[in-house]
């Protein structure tokens, strides 16, 4: 029993992080119909950025957290401005190669700046594990769940109750239509890049005390975030969250009941299964019409 609670809890923790990364994909996809293959690098930059602000510059957590989020969000804007907007014919293959290029460029840069070895980042609360139903729960897990919950609520308010949020959704539904209505889709794209990069950065910030921060952590987390977004049906906020949590729990149970070697394979197998059986995701409509 306590074992299952333990697996569930660590699964939810990892899942919450996948959910944040998946939200980044979803948000960007909704506003621009683009999948950013550098999304995982924003996660990596969040982690390494936090390491630098906390351990090198000695900032307190409450200041370092928003500062890193802001910096990573700005990087998203820079990426959009320099590498996406100048593209004349935005076809998927072109955008994929460009964002992949951005991804390994950032990774190479991170390797030069931070070195090849991972850095450890202190937990947000230095308390001892809390015992619940015989399972030991790390305070960092609670932190992660709280941050993700807040983010979800904020995003929901943003997209349902602010003009900008609604405009962004309108872009997703009909780009040229939104343009006719006077919604500046360029500015929306930029905002979407900023927000999705910031979400990736936050994912990296909250995960760093658990996994350590290293230049090569981005690919796997990016892929898993995409898998989560696909599970929930790319384009749906709640789908991204459910998909993330589901992936996290399945992984953790897989590790618990089979072996840890299988962990990374689970996300991939799920991704393939979902691509083959229901490309619109578990929660999405039956047919993929948007492609």
């Amino acid at each position: 029993m306590s074992e299952i609670v333990q697996y569930l809890m660590s699964g939810l923790t990892a899942g919450a992080i996948y959910a944040v990364i998946a939200l980044g994909y979803t948000l960007l996809y909704n506003a621009t119909e683009l999948v950013n293959f550098a999304q995982g690098e924003f996660v990596m930059l969040g982690s390494l950025g936090l390491f630098t602000f906390l351990s090198v510059l000695g900032w307190p957590l409450w200041a370092a957290f928003p500062a890193v989020t802001l910096v990573v969000g700005l990087l998203g804007v820079v990426l959009e401005r320099l590498a996406i907007r100048p593209v004349k014919k935005p076809e998927p293959i072109t955008l994929i190669i460009i964002t992949v290029g951005a991804s390994i460029f950032l990774r190479g840069l991170a390797m030069l700046l931070w070195g090849k070895d991972p850095h450890s980042v202190p937990g947000f609360a230095a308390a001892a594990p809390i015992r619940v139903l015989g399972a030991a729960i790390m305070p960092q897990s609670l932190w992660i769940l709280a941050v993700v919950g807040l983010l979800m609520g904020g995003l929901h308010l943003f997209s349902k109750h602010t003009l900008t949020g609604k405009a962004m959704e309108a872009c997703a539904i009909h780009r040229s239509g939104a343009w006719i209505l006077g919604i500046p889709s360029d500015r929306m794209a930029q905002l979407a890049f900023a927000m999705s990069a910031a979400l990736g950065g936050i994912g990296g910030i909250i995960i760093s005390p658990i996994t350590m921060a290293g230049y090569d952590m981005g690919t796997m987390l990016g892929l898993k975030g995409f898998c989560a977004a696909m599970l929930g049906g790319l384009g749906s906020h709640w789908g991204a969250v459910v998909g993330g949590l589901l992936l996290g729990v399945l992984e953790s149970l897989g590790v618990g009941f089979f072996s840890s070697g299988i962990k990374d394979a689970i996300a991939f197998l799920l991704l393939l299964a979902i691509l083959m059986a229901r490309p619109s995701g578990l929660l999405g409509p039956k047919a993929v019409t948007r492609f």
């Binding site: 999948v35 998927p92 994929i96 070697g261 996300a267 490309p279 492609f291």
Partner: peptide
Amino acid sequence: VIGRPTLKLSGYYLAMGTLGLGIIGHV
């Protein structure tokens, strides 16, 4: 087997599917 289902969709899906395949292969 990987291409048949994913290639019906937009280019992003084969790219993600193969990215995963590459990582699993390496593992």
